[in-house]
């Protein structure tokens, strides 16, 4: 897996999570808050996924 692309995706997910949670939580739009939170969780899953993808025999 291309690490640079993966980390760029993680960075973008984090970047969109903040305004979504901020807008959603201050304006009562719970769905936006949830989407933002899920985006953040997904972003932080990427490093762990990368670790195991890089270590798996298929990737070598």
């Amino acid at each position: 897996m291309d690490d640079v692309k993966a980390f760029t995706s993680a960075f973008l997910l984090i970047a969109i999570s903040l305004p979504l949670v901020s807008y959603g939580s201050t304006n009562g739009a719970e769905s936006l808050t949830s989407i933002g939170f899920v985006a953040l969780l997904a972003a932080c899953t990427i490093p762990i996924v990368l670790r195991y993808v890089d270590q798996s025999p298929a990737s070598s």
């Binding site: 949670v21 901020s22 939580s25 808050t33 949830s34 939170f37 969780l41 899953t45 490093p47 762990i48």
Partner: peptide, 29 residues
């Protein structure tokens, strides 16, 4: 390691410290 620590903190906050999902989202933000 930071991701592992983060997920552990979220799980403990949700499961033991009675923080709801919207609270977790705000604290994370």
């Amino acid at each position: 390691a930071a991701s592992v620590g983060m997920f552990a903190a979220l799980l403990v906050a949700f499961g033991v410290y009675e923080m709801d999902l919207s609270g977790l989202a705000v604290a994370s933000a």
